[in-house]
C-alpha cells in the first residue's frame, strides 16, 4: 500500500514527531511504500540544519535522516510554513538576502501542491498532528 504522512508536530515538543518517524520506518519493515512525508506548520522545524540538542536528549530529526539515507524517501517541508520560521534553502536565502541557508540537505522545500499530490497518489494519508 502507498502511504504519505502529514507531520504537523514540532520535533522539539512532545512525542508525536518521533512517533511519525517510527511509523515511517515500520512502513518499510511491513513492505509498504512511502510516497512522501510532508512537514507543515511547526512540523517544518524537523528540517532545520542547525538545531543543537543537549547530549541527554534525542532529536527525532536523526530518525528522519536515517530513513532518507536508507530508503530515499522524499522529506518535504512546506515552504510557507518554513520561510516564516527562518527555514531557508540556498535559493530562498539568496532571494530574501538572509545570512545563511538553514535547511538540512536531506530535506527539500515544497509548496502545498506537494501535499495535494501526496493525497492524490497515496492509498493512505496519515496526519501526525500538532498541539
Amino acid at each position: 500500500m502507498i502511504y504519505s504522512l502529514l507531520v504537523l508536530a514540532s520535533p522539539m515538543a512532545g512525542q508525536t514527531n518521533r512517533t511519525a518517524a517510527g511509523f515511517a520506518a515500520e512502513l518499510y519493515n511491513r513492505g509498504h511504500s512511502l510516497h512522501r512525508v510532508f512537514f507543515m506548520d511547526a512540523g517544518v522545524e524537523t528540517a532545520l540544519a542547525t538545531p543543537v540538542v543537549p547530549q541527554d536528549e534525542v532529536n527525532p530529526q536523526a530518525l528522519w535522516i536515517a530513513l532518507a539515507q536508507q530508503f530515499d524517501v522524499q522529506l518535504v517541508a512546506c515552504v510557507s510554513s518554513a520561510l516564516k520560521r527562518g527555514l531557508l534553502d540556498e535559493m530562498e536565502a539568496a532571494r530574501y538576502e538572509k545570512v545563511a541557508a538553514t535547511l538540512h540537505p536531506n530535506f527539500e522545500l515544497g509548496g502545498l501542491g506537494q501535499l495535494v499530490d501526496a493525497s492524490a497518489h497515496s492509498d493512505r494519508l496519515i496526519t501526525f498532528g500538532g498541539v
Binding site: L8, L112, G130
Partner: peptide, 17 residues
C-alpha cells in the same frame, strides 16, 4: 497557534488543484 490557519491553507490548496 497557527494550526487552524494551516488547515484552511491545506483545504484551499486541495480545492485549487
Amino acid at each position: 497557534g497557527t494550526l487552524a490557519r494551516s488547515g484552511l491553507d491545506a483545504a484551499l490548496a486541495a480545492a485549487a488543484f
